[in-house]
């Protein structure tokens, strides 16, 4: 018996935390959002979700197994997360074939071409979404109306998102106060009863997911809170300065700001490692989001903002270090 004693070095115990625990934790946190999207958009939400998740898993398996000739590790759950996030970010009447292309881009190009989980520079789901937005701008920007389309998929009657209503209206010279009447109430936005992508809309469900992830220590408060505060304060400031269409509460409740801040920007792989780095990264996302929304061509901007800051993450990791314990001693010059 004695010869079987293990002699590996310390530490001899482990927290029991695992990649799986964190990944499945994120999946659990997204379930309320999915349920709300089912309630609001019905059949379409289900079809989009199933297509996207299955496609992402399928492509991951196929590419890892036959192109990279490695052992696929679908069980770590990261492909499921990419699939779910992708589904949350697209309209629920998007045709299956477009979703397939988007999934292939997300998994094949944005994730695996960099070397897979842990190496990718950009959040795969966001990269997939932006790819689709650029390739299929029409289909990607016609959203089914909430609550009335539950039994329909492709043929759902569509409408514009709150941010799009305002942006378009302003462009056509309409009055901002008048436009505000047309956008849904804060209450509807809080629960997600507005036109928009499947998972962007329900603030309540997203915040529930955030609370769960914070409780399980999957993520820290730094990224989501900083993004939300930055958007809120900057929009408030601009509103004060008289910029058109700046409404702090509307900006947080719409256009995927919360979904992005809670589920997309917090992706481990593509966000910085230190608390300080996370705050810089999140500040960047917040500022870029507001700037794109108010001055850019697209009504919403958080996807682009996150992707841009993803690109800065390696730089942030290099230059923003944790506060080191004990500053090095200054060597006093010896005078003789």
């Amino acid at each position: 018996m004695m010869q079987f004693l293990k002699v590996s070095p310390s530490p001899h115990i482990h927290s029991g935390d695992s990649v799986k625990r964190n990944m499945y934790g994120v999946i659990i946190a997204m379930i309320p959002v999915f349920l709300m999207s089912l309630y609001t958009f019905g059949l379409g939400a289900l079809v989009v979700m199933l297509t996207s998740v299955l496609a992402c898993m399928f492509f991951e398996y196929l590419i890892v197994r036959f192109l990279l000739k490695q052992q696929p590790s679908l069980s770590d759950g990261s492909a499921i997360i990419t699939g779910m996030l992708l589904a949350f970010n697209i309209p629920t009447n998007l045709p299956v074939w477009i979703i397939l292309i988007g999934s292939l881009f997300a998994i094949g190009v944005a994730k695996l071409s960099y070397g897979g989980l842990g190496r990718n520079l950009f959040n795969p789901a966001l990269a997939g979404r932006v790819f689709m937005l650029i390739s299929f701008p029409v289909q990607m920007t016609s959203w089914p109306l909430p609550l009335v389309n539950r039994g329909l998929y492709i043929d759902a009657t569509t409408g514009a998102t709150p941010l799009a209503i305002i942006k378009e209206g302003l462009k056509n010279g309409q009055d901002y106060a008048e436009l505000l009447e047309k956008v849904p109430s804060y209450f509807d936005m809080l629960f997600g009863f507005t036109a928009g992508s499947a998972g962007e809309m329900s603030a309540v469900a997203i915040l529930l997911g955030l609370a769960y992830m914070l409780w399980r220590k999957i993520i820290t408060w730094h990224i989501p809170l900083t993004i939300i505060m930055t958007i809120f304060m900057l929009t408030g400031l601009l509103k004060f300065a008289g910029a058109p269409a700046a409404d702090p509460i509307l900006y947080i409740l719409s256009g995927g700001a919360l979904l992005g801040a809670v589920f997309m920007a917090t992706d481990y792989v593509t966000s910085p490692m230190t608390a300080r780095g996370m705050i810089v990264y999140a500040l960047g996302i917040g500022v870029l989001t507001v700037v794109i929304r108010i001055y850019g061509a697209y009504p919403e901007g958080i996807s682009f903002a996150i992707l841009i800051m993803n690109a800065f993450t390696p730089l942030i990791n290099t230059y923003i270090k944790p506060p080191m314990f004990g500053k090095p001693v200054k060597v006093k010059a010896v005078t003789k």
Binding site: S73, L117, G118, Y268, P272, P323, M324
Partner: peptide, 20 residues
């Protein structure tokens, strides 16, 4: 397995190092 860049090792290091 591959580092998922979660930063947890950095958070817990009492000396403020970057173990990963």
């Amino acid at each position: 397995s591959e580092c998922i860049r979660c930063g947890k090792c950095v958070t817990v290091c009492p000396m403020g190092l970057q173990p990963y």
